[in-house]
Design a protein around this nucleic acid. Structure first.
Lengths: 188, 188
DNA sequence: GGCTCCATGTAAGGAGTTACATGATTCA
DNA sequence: TGAATCATGTAACTCCTTACATGGAGCC
């Protein structure tokens, strides 16, 4: 395996796949794919068309190694993160780029910018209330699954707690938007 | 101008550009570009290489119309959203897809998943504390500029309030992570 | 005359998406 | 024996990115 130089930083997806291999390995690419698919915060499709090329790149960079499983007649390959892979992962985690401190791209916030396109108060209120309801539903979803995680894994518990607090904040904010819209003039 | 059919939904960027033209128009593509560049939540580079092709597509779809300014010797074109554009924008704002209810992709949360790669407690604590400090800095940044927005524009005030509440939640969460790490065992 | 800002674009490339394709294994 | 799952991949496409290219307008 020829190890290519890192011409630039890994993408978020590449880093997360590397992390998953480091954390769960030895395991197959398929297992990683399933984990991404089941994950609550699956912002990636994690289809075979994305995951296998990512693994290929990580292997070419010498960050992940793959060994064929002789007991399996299929093309099953067992992945492990290399020492170099762990080192790159470590600096990805540690060296927070400046943009990671900024708020994320919230699709509700994006849409609220143009709420004036909804011409009457009823339509604006309806929009805000549906977004609010969706946020509260997500809060309940997180609250439902947090207790089991608390027993299983401290890290998984904490990451899900982060998701919970984010959607709680969104729900709280939308409550304020709703109140401002109900009490004040139409937004334009 | 031949109007193409919408073969699928607009991307978030395309919708936001359409929204900006609808809101600020008549204006040039350059003005839109500047607005995106200055925006706090600029998740897009908004370079000319992205903005002009987007405008081109929106024009081809008949959502934005462009008129040459005879008083200007340059290739200056003044953009306005068409009625069809306003209608598409309206449904983009109104019809929230299911995924918009989910928590966003938080790079800190992504990294926390693999915090075990930082091998000693000091390194883990250092990571959490730096993320915490960055979040609090962002909170102060938002708090600083909110009062002026309150007077200027209700919508801009509300969207920035949303950003503030998100980073406040993140800061609060990282405080909890810090405490758990300081009081309990190392994360793995 | 040169510098900065206004203004519009193209070209090459990368990363991720959907859709397609293949075959072994396991279990009812 | 047939269906679901395990397992790996390719092909075409889209969108966005960086870098490059051009030229007028205004100002010192």
């Amino acid at each position: 395996m020829v190890v290519k130089a890192l011409r630039k930083e890994l993408t978020e997806l590449e880093s997360c796949v590397l992390g998953a291999v480091w954390l769960r390995g030895p395991c197959t690419a398929y297992a990683i794919r399933c984990e991404f698919a089941e994950s609550t915060s699956s912002y990636w499709s994690a289809s075979s068309g994305s995951i296998y090329p990512v693994i290929k790149r990580l292997r070419a960079l010498g960050l992940v190694s793959a060994a064929a499983d002789p007991s399996d007649k299929r093309d099953k390959r067992v992945l492990v993160a290399t020492a170099r892979g762990a080192s790159i992962l470590r600096s990805w985690v540690r060296d927070l780029p400046a943009w990671t401190g900024k708020p994320s791209l919230d699709p509700i916030r994006s849409r609220l910018n143009f709420i004036a396109v909804l011409e009457d108060r009823a339509a604006q209120l309806d929009f805000v209330e549906r977004a609010h309801a969706a946020a509260r539903a997500q809060v309940h979803e997180f609250r439902r699954q947090l207790p089991t995680l608390k027993k299983t894994s401290a890290v998984e518990y904490l990451t899900n707690l982060g998701g919970l607090e984010e959607v709680e904040a969104r729900a709280h904010w939308l409550g304020a938007v709703r109140k401002m819209l109900a009490d004040g003039p139409i937004l334009k």
